[in-house]
Design a protein around this nucleic acid. Structure first.
Lengths: 211, 211
DNA sequence: CTATTTTCATAACGGTCACTATTGAAATCG
DNA sequence: CGATTTCAATAGTGACCGTTATGAAAATAG
């Protein structure tokens, strides 16, 4: 008869919580960007020493990749939720934009989207990281495109709608909102921007109105 | 009787052309961003040594400020030209967007806008530079706003038009196009995006059509 | 207990960062 | 000419970069 205790691993247990450490590292990368965040910044904020960081995450780049996944599952999850939960394509898109305006200006974390602004131009040595982040941006646009294509298939949108162009348009809006949020724009200002953007969707502003 | 020769300065003349040096430095900053461009990268591309760079420009940051002005007077000048030369607000905006699509994908220089993407998040030591670049972004939005307000005053646009929101919308579009261009988007893709964006302007896509 | 394994903290690694002291060459001035 | 001024090249500055060797500390296994 075996006891099913959760079988502690062999050696000395680590003294920090990996999830909390990722949260703290995320804030640093979010605020300073990938290149701007030094390992000293990270270990200082995470409350661990450099060898502990390297034992747990391999390298600064490895930690960053873990943080990106952590971001997508946390503060960045609202996008995927909006696109899958809303019944109509237009409703989904509008919810993404409105929630972006709110999330990008929250005071509990740096303003703007972490993926949009963490690493754009960079030294050649960091190009692989920049490429990864660029692929995440492309993935978001692709998510938009799929949702719009689904809306076209469902008859919500005219069949001649260019889903790719619409998706790239939305990607640009989100990207631009992220930068403006970082530059100090308020939620109200971003919502005004969203209202203009939704006009490109045809029909008036706001949610589809009954008539 | 004085001879009016162009009075060469006293000591040994410098052996490099400052304008050409700024051009070369601009390409490096454009490609690698402010933090990603090292002084070694810059001197290597400019064909001068570090002491020459510091004698002529004071510091890396000083050189960057000169390069930003050089950019605005060169590759970035089309925006100001479009906004002042076009007779209507809508025409001016559409020209800015269409020319952005073309300029951002030129093969003679890195894709995207240099001001949009050179330095967003960064180490705290470089925050003054980031603030400067942010103020340039804000200046572009303000230029948009003024042009739209002028269009409202001229009766081209409905008096209830929110010029600030429209301007922020356009700033976001340009910012987003810049990132997508850097990520590899083609001119045709960006023009498709522009067409969608112009729909937010009311009345179908494209230039105002006679009817 | 001893042996083993893993994490911890200290201290340091070579490399690159932005930047400059020094020196000699190249120009103009008197 | 000699004196002066400015530039350019060499060679380095200290500081910080990401990363790691070392050894003590803390847990399990036998």
């Amino acid at each position: 008869m075996k006891i099913v205790t959760p079988t502690r691993p062999r050696g000395r247990p680590r003294e920090f919580d990996e999830t909390k450490a990722l949260d703290l590292a995320m804030m640093v990368f979010w605020r300073l960007g990938y290149e701007g965040a030094s390992v000293a910044d990270l270990t200082g904020a995470m409350g661990i020493t450099a060898p502990s960081l390297y034992a747990a995450f391999g390298s600064k780049e490895g930690l960053y990749r873990r943080v990106l996944a952590h971001y997508q599952a946390g503060p960045g999850a609202f996008t995927w939720a909006a696109l899958t939960e809303e019944p109509t394509a237009r409703g989904a898109i509008e919810r993404v934009l409105r929630e972006s305006a709110r999330v990008f200006t929250r005071r509990k974390h740096p303003h703007g989207c972490m993926i949009s602004t963490a690493i754009l131009r960079c030294a050649e040595a960091h190009q692989p990281v920049a490429d990864l982040v660029a692929s995440l941006r492309a993935g978001a646009v692709e998510l938009f495109r799929e949702r719009i294509a689904r809306g076209i298939a469902a008859g919500e949108l005219p069949p001649e709608t260019d889903a790719g162009a619409m998706a790239r348009f939305l990607g640009a809006i989100v990207q631009g909102m992220s930068v403006q949020a970082q530059d100090g724009a308020s939620e109200a200002e971003l919502l005004g921007l969203v209202e203009v953007a939704m006009r490109a969707w045809g029909g008036g502003a706001g949610r589809p109105r009954a008539r």
